[in-house]
């Protein structure tokens, strides 16, 4: 029979390594760290928004300033531009963490990697998808988007960009070990974005046409639910492949 002090010295291996965190606090810590890092360098958050606005500016210049024409193509333009802006920010999702070794610590952590990766993706959506969705109505005004579709535009972008972040994270995880992986990332991810674009832009067009938007939004939600179930495992597997070579 050993003494209590001796027993306490050989408790769980987690405690011995100084790891004394539940999954919830690990997720919270991951999200908090990513948010702080982004807030200290706001460029990462603001650049996609500037890109979004800039691309939207190019279309009237390139096509025609005619409000009637712009109103017809506005839903698609806004959706495609927001999609590209979200894509542009994906490359940085894991790259810096991979370069400074933080990603390896995430792999070594005693918590499931899919959950931790999903926490990082959630921060990405919070700092990219959500701002893009909030900004889209303003750009919609510039493209003379018909009244009555602004709410649906923001809602469909908020919902759809979450799916874009989750699916895009697979591509970001696959290309994190590849130097100059940006173009490759777009090549991998854009084909997978097609359903989100169809239902997202479709929701806005349905709102303009006055037909029901519920089906489109429900399908966007279904895509998000399916992505949330399957993608975290693919992200985790891809991160392991990229880091372990």
């Amino acid at each position: 029979m050993s003494r209590p002090e001796a027993r306490s010295a050989i408790v769980s291996p987690d405690r011995a390594r100084g790891v004394d965190a539940s999954l919830t606090s690990a997720l919270y810590a991951t999200m908090r760290r990513d948010l702080i890092l982004l807030l200290r360098r706001p460029g990462a958050v603001l650049n996609p928004l500037a890109f979004f606005a800039l691309v939207i500016t190019l279309f009237p210049i390139g096509i025609s300033p005619d409000p009637e024409l712009l109103a017809i193509i506005a839903p698609g333009l806004l959706w495609v531009a927001a999609l590209l802006a979200a894509l542009l920010s994906l490359d940085g999702l894991f790259r810096e963490d991979a370069e400074d070794g933080a990603l390896e610590q995430l792999l070594l952590a005693p918590h499931p990697l899919p959950a931790l990766a999903l926490a990082k993706v959630a921060v990405h959506w919070l700092t990219t998808g959500l701002p893009l969705a909030l900004m889209a109505p303003v750009l919609g005004v510039m493209l003379s988007l018909p009244l009555g579709s602004y709410g649906v535009l923001a809602l469909s972008l908020a919902l759809g960009s979450a799916t874009l972040s989750v699916i895009g994270a697979i591509g970001a995880a696959l290309t994190v070990g590849v130097s100059r992986g940006g173009v490759l990332l777009s090549l991998l991810v854009l084909p997978l974005y097609v359903p989100v674009l169809i239902f997202g832009a479709g929701a806005v067009q349905a709102a303009i046409a006055g037909s029901g938007v519920a089906a489109h939004l429900a399908l966007l939600g279904a895509l998000l639910a399916a992505a949330l179930v399957f993608a975290p495992w693919a992200i985790a597997a891809s991160l392991r492949i990229s880091l372990n070579g």
Binding site: I170, L174, L188, A234, A237, S238, I241, S242, N244, G245
Partner: peptide, 9 residues
């Protein structure tokens, strides 16, 4: 690594 990444994709 390329093989496994391509398999996942």
């Amino acid at each position: 690594a390329g093989s496994r990444a391509a398999s996942v994709l």
